[in-house]
Design a protein around this nucleic acid. Sequence first.
DNA 1: TGCATATATAAGTATATGCTTATATACTAT
DNA 2: ATAGTATATAAGCATATACTTATATATGCA
Lengths: 119, 119
Amino acid sequence: MKLMEDMKTVIEVEEAAKMLKLLGDKTRLTMVALMEEDECCVCEFVELFNMSQPSVSQHLRKLRDVGLVVEERRGQWIFFCVNRSHPAYPMVKSLLSHLPNQHNKLLELEQRGLRVCCE
Amino acid sequence: MKLMEDMKTVIEVEEAAKMLKLLGDKTRLTMVALMEEDECCVCEFVELFNMSQPSVSQHLRKLRDVGLVVEERRGQWIFFCVNRSHPAYPMVKSLLSHLPNQHNKLLELEQRGLRVCCE
DNA sequence: TGCATATATAAGTATATGCTTATATACTAT
DNA sequence: ATAGTATATAAGCATATACTTATATATGCA
C-alpha cells in the first residue's frame, strides 16, 4: 500500500531523451541539482565549477532554451531557478533524488563570502 | 507518511551524468524501456526501429560497455536485458516510470510474427 | 558621464557522436 | 563442407558538442 506517491507524469520518449541529453553533462546536472536546492546566479556557478563565465552562460542557456530553468534579473545579477511546472520536471525531480545532496556546496560558498544575496 | 518507498540508491553525479548521456538518445532510451519490459535481441530492435543492424549493435554496445545491459547468447541470437543490479539501475528505473508503456510495441512485433522466441 | 561588475553572444576549434558501408565472426541446417 | 542467418567490428564522414577568446550589453555607483 502506498500512501504518498511521487508525481508520475508521463512524457513522450522523444521529449525525455532531449532532457536526459541535456542532463547528461556533469556540469549541467550539478547545476540543476544545485538549483533544486536554491536559486543561483552565474557568478556563483563560475566560482563553484571554477569554469569560465561564457561556458557557464552557455550551459545555462541550453537549460533555459528547453524551459527547464527560468531566469530573473535582480540588479546586476541574473538568478536562475528550476522551472517546477515544466512537463519534464517530475522526471527530473525523480532522478535528482538519486544524487548526493548539494547543499554543502552552497554552504561552503556562503562561508567563503561568495554567496550572492540581493534583498 | 510513506509506507512504501522506491529504492533511492545514491550515485555520484559524474556516474549519473554518464548514464543520462547514454539515455539521452531516443533510440537507446526506447531500447532500455523495451528491455525493462522483456529481453530483446538485435534483430527485434532492427525491426522495431527500422534501423540498420550495425547501428543497433553499436547502440547496444554502448549500453553494455557501461554495464547497464547484459547479453546472453541463445543459439543464433543474442538477447539483451537490463542489468537490474547496476548501481545506477534505481535511477534508471525511476526515470523510466515517467515514460509511456512500451508493451504495445512488443505486442505488435509478436502479432507480425517477428518476435524471437527460443525455448 | 565614466568606470566597474555581471552577463550574453559570436566565432573558432578540437573532440565526440551517430550514422553509413564493408567485412568479420558465430551459429544452424542441409 | 557450404550456405544462410544473426551479430560484431572497423573505417569513414557529417554533424553536434563543449570549450576557448574576443566583444557586446546591461546595471550600479562615484
